[in-house]
Design a protein around this nucleic acid. Sequence first.
DNA 1: GCACATGTTCTCGG
DNA 2: CCCGAGAACATGTG
Length: 282
Amino acid sequence: MPYRAGPSSGTHRAVPELPEVEVTRRGLVHAWVGSTIEKVWTTKPNYFFATSPDILKRRLRGRCTTRLIRHGKYIVAELDDGARLLCHLGMTGQITARPLAPDPHVHLKLSVSQSATITFRDVRKFGKVEYLPPGQSSARLDRLGPDALSIDADALGRSLARRSVPIKTALLDQSVLAGVGNIYADEALFDARVRPSRPANRLGSRTITRLLSSVQTVLLASIEGGGSTVNDYLKPDGTLGGYQDWHRVYGKRGQPCPRCSTPLSHSTHAGRSTHFCKKCQR
DNA sequence: GCACATGTTCTCGG
DNA sequence: CCCGAGAACATGTG
């Protein structure tokens, strides 16, 4: 069935990792930053909200958003009274400034002007929206390590030196570096020719430098390509736009390695599926 | 009808 | 404290 009804039009498909979150953030800046929240609409209280809908409504109305920043997979809206609104997209979260058709998966709407509404949609409700009063810290944010795009190799090396877990597991650990998820971890390890099972604290500094370079190259390339953003209504045949083109190993078990043609291997780390080439990743 | 996919957080052992 | 395994969360897809 090629046709997809309204709500999924122009929304993100793949699980949001750093690039998808960054593309989302950039797409929201124009409508959201500098405008005042006039109306707040939420669904009934449920686990989607780390802060109760009542508090969200009371505290957000009348506030102007001064900055929209990203740390790892979090989008943080800074408000003019010093409060912050923390947004995590979880597995299927989407935030858009475009009008959406009525949809049971929309949980929060912020009217920021007569013409624009910031809409939070999340089918699985693994996403989170949390209100932080002025000056209040967030356990969620405090747990995060440096953002994957800004950490340097020395800092990463110091962090990895304390961990004997497989490097794949360490890359997924948001307290080591924030923003890398399962897909980009596999892609970066492949790019750097590092075997996912290698203990993190056994990587030499040159390898760490190479790996971090691969992580950042892959993330930046994906941001440039629009992340995994797919306009379903433009690609109703299931083609996932630019993102699939960046895939070299993820989801390709058994297929030939793009470098050496050896069939790609598969394993599990931290409960996540891992794809790698056992010949060119050492 | 059941396995699978995913990020985060938690528990239970070793 | 460190680590891994596994579960829970929700639900669409195959």
